[in-house]
Simulated scan of single mutants.
Amino acid sequence: MKSFVFHGPGQSAWEEVPDPGLKDPTDAVVRVDAVTICRTDLHILKGDVPEAPSGTVLGHEAVGVPESFETCTRMVRPGGRVANGGVHGKPATLHLEDLWIKNVTITTGLVDTSSTPTLLRMAASGRVPTAPLVTHTFPLDRMEEAYEVFAAADTGALKVVLGEQRHGELAVPAA
Results as ranks from 00 to 15, higher is better:
87 V>T: 03
157 A>L: 14
44 I>R: 07
128 V>M: 04
34 A>G: 05
37 I>Y: 04
101 I>C: 11
43 H>M: 07
29 V>L: 08
45 L>Y: 13
140 L>V: 13
60 H>M: 07
152 A>E: 08
85 G>D: 07
85 G>V: 02
83 A>D: 08
94 L>M: 14
51 E>I: 05
113 T>H: 05
61 E>R: 06
138 F>E: 00
75 M>C: 12
130 T>I: 15
70 E>C: 11
159 K>R: 14
81 R>M: 10
111 V>C: 08
174 A>E: 12
6 F>L: 05
174 A>K: 09
85 G>N: 11
1 M>H: 10
101 I>V: 15
111 V>Y: 08
78 P>S: 13
94 L>R: 12
44 I>H: 02
57 V>H: 12
80 G>Q: 07
164 E>C: 06
153 A>M: 00
172 V>N: 08
138 F>K: 04
122 M>E: 10
35 V>C: 14
99 L>G: 00
59 G>K: 00
147 Y>W: 02
36 T>G: 11
21 G>N: 12
52 A>K: 00
89 G>D: 04
54 S>E: 15
117 P>S: 10
55 G>C: 13
6 F>D: 01
132 P>H: 11
167 H>G: 06
166 R>Q: 12
159 K>D: 02
80 G>D: 05
9 P>E: 01
156 G>W: 15
56 T>N: 09
132 P>L: 09
61 E>W: 03
109 G>S: 07
20 P>V: 08
155 T>L: 04
40 T>P: 01
87 V>H: 01
68 S>H: 01
99 L>A: 05
100 W>D: 02
105 T>A: 15
52 A>Y: 10
60 H>R: 14
159 K>N: 14
15 E>I: 01
34 A>C: 05
14 W>L: 11
35 V>D: 00
122 M>F: 05
156 G>D: 09
26 T>Y: 09
141 D>A: 13
142 R>T: 09
42 L>S: 09
123 A>W: 10
62 A>T: 12
91 P>W: 14
147 Y>G: 05
94 L>V: 03
74 R>Y: 08
165 Q>S: 15
57 V>E: 13
119 L>N: 07
127 R>S: 13
163 G>T: 03
47 G>W: 01
160 V>I: 09
95 H>Y: 10
